[in-house]
């Protein structure tokens, strides 16, 4: 009932007025029509966005200095990007399957997503190994420094996502879940996955462009 008011309407309420009190007495105590977990994921996404944005600001500041030499973009990086896109796509499919309670599809989807995500992480490590072999060390050029920083922080975020993916999947496989909680968990993981894909596309696009 109170969920449609915008922040300005909310902040201009006069809680001491009897007329407002009548309205307020009917309030159910929640500000947004969102579950706590969903709001939690959104908050985390907001915090992560700030982290990545600030690193991008640093990148943009640094790349105009004379010693900046862009990194090569090995083909494996394109493969990894593809893997991440596919895993995000399957998360979408899995979420839809979960919404329709197609449990067999959900099971296959979750396992495939996990496999793809681990493939991505291993792929990133292989890119690191490849570049180190070519002599692109983290400290040899600021472009390298930022490349390793971005990939590492993004990878850590994905590992955080995998932790929650793991909890959801084990609960699902063991069969001790309730369907609406499972649907919510899958939906939230999917949101986070899409967010990380978006972050990666921005970072990757920036790194190949400059």
């Amino acid at each position: 009932m109170k969920k449609k008011e915008n922040i300005f309407q909310l902040l201009t309420q006069k809680p001491w007025e009897p007329s407002q009190a009548k309205i307020d007495n009917e309030h159910d105590g929640a500000t947004l029509a969102l579950s706590k977990a969903k709001l939690g994921v959104r908050t985390i996404i907001a915090v992560s966005t700030v982290i990545f944005s600030l690193m991008i600001v640093g990148y943009a500041d640094r790349m105009f200095v004379y010693d900046w030499r862009s990194m090569p973009d090995p083909w494996l990086l394109w493969v990894n990007t593809g893997v991440l896109i596919i895993s995000s796509f399957f998360f979408y499919k899995t979420k839809v399957a979960a919404d329709h309670k197609q449990l067999e599809k959900v099971k296959n989807g979750l396992l495939l997503i996990g496999f793809l995500a681990f493939t991505f992480l291993v792929g990133q490590l292989l890119v690191w190994q490849h570049l180190i072999k070519l002599g692109y060390y983290v400290s040899s050029n600021p472009a390298n420094s930022y490349f390793y920083l971005f990939t590492a922080v993004h990878g850590l975020h994905l590992m955080g996502g995998l932790f929650f993916w793991g909890r959801t999947t084990t609960k699902f496989l063991k069969g001790n879940y309730n369907i609406s909680k499972l649907q919510q968990a899958i939906e939230l993981c999917a949101t986070y996955w899409h967010f990380l894909l978006l972050v990666w596309l921005v970072l990757f696009g920036m790194m190949i462009a400059w």
Binding site: D28, G29, T31, L32
Partner: peptide
């Protein structure tokens, strides 16, 4: 989200 009823 966790306030009690009536607590705007």
């Amino acid at each position: 989200q966790s306030r009690t009823r009536g607590m705007t």
